[in-house]
Design a protein around this nucleic acid. Structure first.
Lengths: 111, 111
DNA sequence: TGGCCATATGGCTATTATACCATATAATGA
DNA sequence: TCATTATATGGTATAATAGCCATATGGCCA
């Protein structure tokens, strides 16, 4: 049976959201994002930071860019990436909130 | 070469965060979370909502529970799930913020 | 122009995620 | 106890992701 139009619209809204969440769902990308929140950095610097192959980091950056989370600006030979959105604070708070609640729950079990 | 202790600690913090983000990175799970923010629901109800196999929904719920995002309570034959953390609002705001900025950027290109 | 540096992309493999089906488990009531 | 209903789990096929290597691309300077 075909999905009703309203259900289909709701589904695609969740899919759009999930695409953003997926971009945030990798430790290297989280590391990159937090570094870029301090200041723009070139790929080489981020490659050092992450400690993976340059091509791997480049692909992570392409993915973050595709999600609209970062933007790039070429300066000579180097490409500098910077955070594009100003609303990641809520995300970090959410994540840290969950982690601290999980920790509390775990401690309650041990006690 | 071995990673320095500080770098290792930072990495594992990002991995913990990424585990939470991964749990949020699927449209069905986002749909489930938003539904559960309104009220607790049993698996059967969520199965109808999501429109996937019952076993699939059950696995999504197990994953959300494992991440510490929801909790379950058995009531007779049924199991009711509810949102455990109170900090998802920041997440939704973050996601919607990104989506609306992406939309703005897209419109600017067309103009 | 030719060589060099930084970055991006294609190709491949290994791992992980997702879905469904079949079936196990748990609780209830006849 | 047995059948029934709700949920969870194991198996398995397929798709998506992530990593590295090799190489292409783009810009700079001799």
């Amino acid at each position: 049976m075909a999905m009703k139009p309203a259900a289909r619209a709701a589904r695609s809204r969740y899919e759009a959201r999930a695409r953003i969440a997926k971009a945030l769902a990798h430790s290297s990308r989280l590391m990159i994002l937090e570094a870029l929140e301090r200041r723009p950095m070139c790929v080489c610097e981020l490659t050092d930071l992450v400690g993976a192959d340059q091509s791997t980091v480049s692909k992570h950056l392409a993915l973050l860019k595709q999600a609209g989370l970062v933007e790039d600006r070429r300066d000579g030979v180097m490409v500098f990436y910077s955070v594009k959105v100003c609303c990641l604070k809520g995300f970090w708070e959410c994540i840290e909130g969950v982690l601290s609640e999980n920790l509390k729950a775990q401690q309650a079990v041990l006690r």
